[in-house]
Structure formats: C-alpha cells, structure tokens
Nucleic acid binder design. Sequence first.
DNA 1: CATATCAAGTGATCTAATCACTTATTCCCA
DNA 2: TGGGAATAAGTGATTAGATCACTTGATATG
Lengths: 232, 232
Amino acid sequence: MSEVTRPTLSDALTERMLELIRKGGHRPGDRLPSTRELSQRFAVTTPTLREALRRLEATGAIELRHGSGIYVGAAIERLVLPNPNMREVHAAQLVELLGARIVIEPPLAAMAAQNAEGEELAVLKGVLDRACRHLRGDDAELHEANMSFHRATARMAGNSVLHEVVDSLLLVHGPEQREILQIFDDRRRDYEEHLAILEAIEARDAAQAEERMRAHLVEVRTVIEHRLHPPG
Amino acid sequence: MSEVTRPTLSDALTERMLELIRKGGHRPGDRLPSTRELSQRFAVTTPTLREALRRLEATGAIELRHGSGIYVGAAIERLVLPNPNMREVHAAQLVELLGARIVIEPPLAAMAAQNAEGEELAVLKGVLDRACRHLRGDDAELHEANMSFHRATARMAGNSVLHEVVDSLLLVHGPEQREILQIFDDRRRDYEEHLAILEAIEARDAAQAEERMRAHLVEVRTVIEHRLHPPG
DNA sequence: CATATCAAGTGATCTAATCACTTATTCCCA
DNA sequence: TGGGAATAAGTGATTAGATCACTTGATATG
C-alpha cells in the first residue's frame, strides 16, 4: 500500500542508526557519537544525517540535546510503535504484542457487535471473502486479508483512538511474519475462526463476539509460544 | 521531566506546519506547497524545513513523495499519538480518549493486582503519597501525580506493549488539561478513588481492582461530557 | 490512437562555514 | 579553603545556494 517510492538515502540512514544503537548494546540514556562523527561514519552530510535523527527523535528512539549530545531514548528498548517508516519487531516481543491484543481486541469485538450496521458489516464480509478466495494460493494476500479482518473489526467498534491503537499494533504484523502467525499450519483455521467471530457480530451477540475473539487470539499466542520455545 | 532544552527553531516550525495543515482545512491526500515555497514562507532554509517535515512524516502527519510533492497523511485528522514533540489533542477527542482508556486500563489494573510485588507496589504508594502532599497547593504537581498513578499501574501489569500504549494515551493529558480532568471540582476525589484502586491491588483482588478502575474512568468521562455539553 | 520523448516542477543531497548552547575546567576572590 | 564566575572545548542548530534524481503531464511521433 505504501512504499511506492524507492527507499531514499535518509530512509536507509534511519535504519542504520537504529541498528547502530541496538546492536551496539546501547541503553536508554547512553550518549551516542556526535553529529560530526556520525555523518563521517555513514558518509553523508550533516543535513541528511539530521533528517534521519529527527525521525528517530519523533518516535522517542533518541533525544537531541543542544550543546550536549545525542542520547538514546526510552522507546528504543520498547516496541517502536506507529512509525510507518520502520516497522520492526523482535520475535520475543511478539508474545507481548499478542498479550496486548488479547486485552484490547475482545472488547472491541463486543462493541462492534453492538454497532453492527449494514455498510460496515458488508466491509467485514468483504474482507473475509477476500481471505476465502486466497485460501489456497497467494500467501501474502491471505495474510493481509486476515490482518484486515482485525483492523475492520476495530474500526466497527467506533472509537477512533482504539482503532488507531489497533492499527499501530497490527502494523508490525507485516508480511514477513505471516508464517509464525499462521495457526496450526492450517490455512483454513484462521479463516474459520474469523468467520465465527463475524457470525457473532452479525447476530449482535456482544458477549459471544468478545469471547470468540479472545479465544482466537489466545490460541494464536499459544501457537507462537510453542514455535518460539518448542516443548521439550 | 522532559522539555529541559529551549524550543528550537525546528520545533516551532513543526507546530507551524501542523497549524498550516489543520487551519488550512487540508484533508488527507491533499498536496501541500513545495519545499521551496514553504521554506520561503517560513523564512527558514531548506535543511531546517526538512527536519520539521521529517518529524511530521515520522508520525504519519504528512508524506513526502520524491519528485511529486508533499501530501497530507491519514494521521492528521486522527489523534497524533506518541510524539513527544507535539502533544496536542482537540477537546472533542477527549471523550473518545477516555473511552479507549476505559477499555484498556481496567484489565491492566487486574493484571497489576496479580503481579503485586513489594518494589512496584512501593512505587505506586509513593506516587499516591506525592499526590497527597499536593492535595492543597501545586496544581500542576497534583495533576502530574494523578497521571503517574495510571502510568504506574499500567507498568505493574507487566506487558511492555500495553504500558507503552497507555503512556501514549496519557501523553496528551498534559498540564493544560488538568482543569477539565479534575473530577467534580473536588481535588480530594481523584486521590481517594486512586487510593481505593491501590487497596484492591495491594489486596491482590484482581476483580475489584478492575471494577474500581473502570468505575473511576467512567466517572471521569461522564464529568468531561457534562463540561463539554452542559445539560440543558 | 497509442506510445515515446521531453521539459518543467519537485524532493533529495551536497558543501562548508557560522551561530548557539552545554559542560567541565580553571581561576580568582573572599 | 571554599564558592562562584569567567572560560574554552565540544556539540547541536542553522545558514546559503547549487546540483542531482525523480515524477508527471504535455508534446511530439509512429
């Protein structure tokens, strides 16, 4: 959807800076090299480097103190949330991410059930149809459709703040994570669980919608945990 | 805590740009003036302007398309969430923001009750003590302490993603909002409700902690609604 | 009519120098 | 000897204008 334009120099710089901080073992509060040194090391000029720094600053990854230096921000060891420019997540954070979704999304499913109206309900059905058509075939499309189901449900709930929060959380579930997020190696499974949730929403059964969404996410988390730490 | 350094030129630029977009009636997808024109209008040089643009880009407020132009992003009409550089929220969004907190924070209170341990419990108590000392006196301090209580509770829950989400949401409850967030014009009220929540957490009574947190936030929202739309 | 070419407009980057601020040291005076 | 003021080094902030790279719509060409 995005990423229509070729990655620019400063795009790459932003990621190299992040890498420098993370792989350099820097902790929040640590001081980083000066702008002069960084621009030399990365072989770019000051203004270009600064653009990358400003982006990192905007997300809380670093902090620029005039006359003092560049410092690692608190957000660096947390999840870098809603930055379209650097969707990155460590595997270990996936479990916590699912934990967050388990708290937030079930109530949203309940709210969606209460608001269930013609138009938005149609959107939700459309998303599931799309997933159904890719049940055997394009992996990336199927994954995208599955994620869209969660986004659409959050949207139906009618609270724009929560909608944005869920969007942010799902942002890190990029295509590269589709394997680990696939339940039980069964492509059909995700779809059927989503379908069950839709039915509850359509029936305006808030309690059931909430419970099915929760069960669904808990199951996903369980699978992920097993894959990260195989039993035995 | 932050904001130790004087606002820089590019800080101001970022806000002026936001103002230009918002008050200019621009919608997502609209094209903004070119970098050359913007730098002239604001009387700054290209690199300085670009730093401001990169910050706005990082939060999704705008989009820079090489060779094409600068476009308004989708995030511009939503809440600008976790950007330490521009904490801004429209009054009407407060109600929705509270709605989001009502969904997220009560379960966190329950999780905090389950994790209740010595050290973090002490932190929570310390926060309430600080609030107590400012019950009559420094308004800003009292407000900050009240917000810290919610942050600390979220932290106790033990999920860093949710902790970050709550931090982001509370970020917009800056000092300038302390009046509207004050329950019933009674400075003591907030403190006492927080105290009740703490007691439930301390007693490891998850259900009660959750319910008290929910009741507390619902009450705050109700008050805010009444202030925004006085009955009659 | 469709395709290829081109030119204007726009963002991206470079260059290198100067300004403004912080910090720790030093020095002086009490 | 202690405390505070001047100071110098280091660092981020900003300036200036030119050049490169890309997009897009108009124009020309088959």
